[in-house]
Design a protein around this nucleic acid. Structure first.
Lengths: 207, 207
DNA sequence: ACGGATCCATACCTGGATCCTG
DNA sequence: CAGGATCCAGGTATGGATCCGT
């Protein structure tokens, strides 16, 4: 937390310079760079799989784009759908719940200016409140239930008040195998769980 | 085959130049380069997994180092041991057999001179003869049997007349999980199947 | 001489997210 | 404006084999 507070008010360009890195190029070529940069700045174990960013602390790190009033401007990716496992996994043991059990949110200015000039906001360490967890569980159960019924191909991002399912892949032609309504194999685009910005905006206000 | 014959007598440097590539550096930094180069020269689908190099033809491509008399100077890697599957897989359905069912051998001069100066020999399209297949099957059954008994940790490259098992990994610290004699989990170095050079020397003489 | 150790290229997967068009 | 599409980095796995000490 001390390290995270120390970033408050600094631009991403300053952080990059301090770490000996650069963040140049088109904005669409920089999608994950702010996240990578803050991971390095805080000493997270980058790129490791199936573990929190700070394994010893059980903390997940997320940068989150906010406007001048503190509203979140984009949804937040949580994790990939594991189509093979989701039918057997209850909320209590789900990857989504583990990922969201303890998150360090680091707001980053989302104004339309060069990444190097955007400033880092006040970091918040968050655990879901009882109300938040109920809301997440309800969405999860509904989404997982529909997948269990083989309705994955018809599931859109419209379902879910705080948690939704959206495509997650290199492009629209990506395919993975899932089970259809009659138990048959169907090819669908890989998906991921995302948090709606209304949910993350609210939790940042509370925290 | 026409393309493969066309390479006869040319140096790897000539082939690299024709393809717009280079093969510089220390010899130990060039271990797989001859193979990569000949793949490109013959239009093989490089790097694809679980498929032959020429999927439509069912042909596997292997460059093989030979001395001036045509003797093979190194063993030939066949495939990785899949410790999880090998207990259930019979020779007839094994990855080893599929890999070796039809191979285009492209001899490459193994003399101790720069890779660019080494010459390509006469390519042979090979299928195992009945005798060769019996010999391979016997070795495979013995090796797979010992693995099935949980003896993987004690298996050395001494076992097998034509097919052997040797380490295959980035370095000696690599580890994978296997089953020991009492069904317990043991950590061992990843292994691969290899053909002894006596076997490949003989098959090149016949072909 | 050869068994154990090692080296490179490339594809693939996961984790980091934001882009952008109807 | 948000659902569907996409972009980059980095680690891991696989495929190409030969190196090299005992």
């Amino acid at each position: 937390m001390v390290r995270a507070q120390a970033l408050l008010g600094h631009t991403l360009g300053e952080v990059a310079a301090a770490l000996g890195g650069r963040i140049d190029g088109e904005s669409r070529s920089l999608k994950g760079r702010a996240g990578d940069l803050v991971e390095r700045a805080l000493g997270a174990s980058a790129g490791s799989a199936a573990e929190p960013d700070f394994p010893a602390l059980g903390i997940e790190l997320k940068t989150i784009p906010v406007d001048e009033r503190g509203s979140v401007s984009e949804s937040t990716f949580v994790c990939t759908l594991q189509l093979a496992r989701i039918a057997d996994e209850r909320w209590a043991d789900s990857w989504v719940r583990r990922k969201l059990s303890c998150v360090l949110w680091v707001p980053v200015d989302a104004a339309p200016r060069p990444l190097t000039e955007r400033r880092i906001g006040r970091a918040r360490l968050w655990r879901p409140s009882p109300d938040e967890e109920v809301a997440l569980k309800q969405d999860y159960d509904e989404l997982a239930g529909r997948i269990g019924l083989g309705e994955i191909a018809d599931l859109t991002a419209h379902t879910g008040r705080c948690l939704q399912i959206r495509p997650k892949g290199p492009d629209g032609s990506a395919r993975t195998t899932a089970l259809g309504p009659a138990g048959e194999l169907v090819e669908v685009m890989p998906r991921g769980f995302y948090l709606r910005s209304s949910f993350t905006s609210a939790l940042l206000q509370h925290a």
